[in-house]
């Protein structure tokens, strides 16, 4: 009678057990990483309808973020500026005839909005408010990265719930003086900033950790 199970099969059960354990652990790990916004969303860099360069405007020209995104202090959204904002400078000051500006001129003359592709997009069930974060002294750079170095804007942070909670549990490293909120190069750690010692801060920053803080 032929041998059905040669001696090497003795090693199969323990190896199989080990393999199953590894499969479960690595399965969880793979989903944990590859299905998370850290992997799927960071680096999202859609092609925009026109080659607007934040690097040129915020970086090289040194314009303040609020010059264009001026509703950040009063509203939930830091609204995309209107065509009028672009034309304030570009109608006369510089490069009025350049090719990249054609879309802006067209929008202005035909009264048609420019259709930007949204980069930083939170789910609809999250209520995010720029105003309160601004008032707490969280810098733009904390969530949007070094926009002043981006010729095309891409998503720098995962914007996942765990990422939000990390700061909500301990906001101190991300707080900065109110005068430096839009300063993308400022680093509160290097500058040795301590929010508790800042006389301009009227109250302690206590971000909500309960569900309805963000899911209202």
């Amino acid at each position: 009678m032929a041998v059905i199970f040669p001696p090497w099969t003795n090693r199969v059960p323990p190896l199989l057990a080990l393999f199953s354990l590894g499969a479960v652990v690595s399965g969880v790990a793979l989903v944990w990483y590859y299905f998370s916004p850290q992997y799927t969303d960071v680096g999202f860099e859609p092609t925009q309808p026109m080659p607007f360069s934040h690097k040129a405007h915020a970086g090289e020209l040194g314009m303040d973020c609020r010059f264009c995104h001026n509703t950040v202090e009063q509203g939930a959204h830091a609204a995309i500026p209107s065509t009028e904002t672009c034309m304030t400078c570009h109608a006369s000051l510089s490069l009025p005839q350049s090719v990249p500006l054609a879309a802006v001129r067209m929008s202005w003359e035909m009264d048609k909005p420019i259709t930007w592709v949204r980069v930083h997009q939170l789910p609809d069930y999250v209520f995010f408010d720029h105003r309160v974060h601004f008032a707490a002294g969280v810098g733009c750079v904390s969530c949007h990265g070094r926009v002043d170095e981006m010729a095309v804007v891409s998503q720098a942070e995962p914007l996942s719930m765990a990422w939000c909670l990390a700061c909500h549990r301990d906001a101190t490293p991300n707080l900065r003086p109110f005068s430096k909120i839009t300063d993308l190069t400022y680093d509160p750690q290097n500058a040795g900033y301590d929010p508790n010692q800042d006389p301009k801060r009227k109250r302690k920053v206590e971000p909500p950790l309960h569900c309805s803080g963000c899911h209202r």
Binding site: S82, P113, I114, T115, W116, V117, R118
Partner: peptide
């Protein structure tokens, strides 16, 4: 998502 900014 597309964001349509105001012209004015």
């Amino acid at each position: 998502e597309k964001v349509l900014a105001y012209t004015r």
